[in-house]
Design a protein around this nucleic acid. Structure first.
Lengths: 236, 236
DNA sequence: CCTGATGTAGACCACGTGGTTAATGTTAAT
DNA sequence: ATTAACATTAACCACGTGGTCTACATCAGG
């Protein structure tokens, strides 16, 4: 709250890039073309972490194409510090997987080195203003990847021969309790039936799921979206 | 491949909206301001599905704020048909959860009714061109939600008192095999140790995880990112 | 040097679990 | 009306499992 007023203008930035020329290029660009204040630069992720702890900048421009400790891990560590530092990933590649992982771990922006300098300034502006910024072309790539992975996940669950579909309603209830680590006796009490009945159901479940014991049954249920079915299907 | 040439211009569109006035407004807008061809309209999701099967449009504009069968479910069904139809969600609310779910199930675009008409045309253009389009403000909202849910997931796994951290390396190996539904005997063979030793390890695991049986141990391991630890931590 | 953590192993026992067979009542579909 | 599917229960047995206690070897750190 208090901090909100401070960085309305003159956001403080740290730039991290193992390429010295590019580092200085970006630095000059920002110092000339924008109101931002480059408080430090680093050519390695580990140094960057120290500097971030020291200077507490609002923004970090992080090159993702570094050897040693790679940029993604660095971003993850910065996020873990939880200092409110907002990191923008800077890279040469528009690989969807890279974009996805960067955003996943908390990057607030993602810019290609090949993009126009105005684009970079704009991105910093947006991110400094508290937004998350991805250029349209990259966000499009991101979403394709995002949807693809989700589609595969859903298909692997609901598609093909999901043996869970052969279970009767009662058997599903029993399996549901099994996936909570409850014993025969416990299930019997919860369902108000005898322990023997539970055993029968469980045995039928084993046969239908083609497994030998409760652990395997539970694993099958979990891996094939027994619980997720509600999440994925009903609660879209 | 063959289809790629056909809809370079004159993409065929179906509009779905339970509000009749708005439906016609959008229709006129598209017919006047763009090159697209509105081949049909519908005021309910179920009718829309039939029309889509019949006309096989390239684009579907789907209102999300409908009663009866809601728009999200409709989009999911359309995706399931797998006809290559690209759906754009149209709604009054910029609720992050709604945006997230729409994109999750396969919407190729998401536009607010309050946005300028040019914005809508542009969105259709982009989506018809095979891209996925979210206006910057909405994509920013999406990413906040996306990152928040991921952060929570990671924290719930790695944070706080994760009892898995107290396991020794050997115990982790044993637990790993337990999570594959393997018995004492099987574990003993795989690790080249006696069955008794396995039992000792397993008992120690139970105590450390504060559970009573293998099923609960497996569940604890799965719920607290035993396997995910690698995925989440190492393979960022 | 010695303590503590770890991995290994055996023995014992109570109990939960898995496999099988048989039987009954209910309900839905043919 | 008859069948098929399902839910229910019993009795039995073999075996896996969980709990406890004891014991020994190794190795790192104080």
């Amino acid at each position: 709250m208090r901090r909100g007023l401070e960085f309305k203008k003159k956001a403080r930035i740290i730039i991290v890039d193992d390429n010295y020329e590019h580092l200085n290029g970006v630095r000059e660009l920002i110092e000339i073309e924008s109101d931002f204040d480059v408080v430090a630069t680093a050519t390695s992720a580990s140094v960057a972490i120290s500097l971030i702890k020291k200077y507490r900048p609002e923004i970090v421009l992080m090159d993702i194409n570094m050897p040693e400790k790679d940029g993604l891990t660095a971003i993850a560590e910065i996020e873990k510090l939880d200092l409110g530092v907002r990191t923008i990933a800077l890279t040469g590649y528009d690989d969807p997987d890279l974009i996805f992982r960067a955003m996943k771990i908390g990057a607030k922006g993602y810019i290609l080195k090949t993009m126009a300098s105005a684009q970079l300034i704009y991105a910093i502006d947006e991110v400094a203003a508290g937004k998350i910024y991805l250029p349209n072309t990259l966000s499009s790539r991101f979403f394709e990847y995002f949807q693809k992975s989700f589609k595969e996940e859903i298909q692997s669950i609901s598609d093909e021969e999901n043996l869970l579909n052969y279970l009767t309603q009662r058997e599903e209830e029993v399996l549901d309790l099994l996936t909570q680590g409850i014993t025969y006796k416990g299930v019997a009490q919860k369902l108000f039936i005898s322990e023997t009945t539970v055993k029968t159901h469980v045995n039928n479940i084993f046969q239908k799921l083609q497994v030998n014991d409760r652990t395997q049954a539970v694993l099958y249920a979990l891996n094939n979206g027994f619980l997720n079915k509600r999440k994925v299907k009903i609660a879209i």
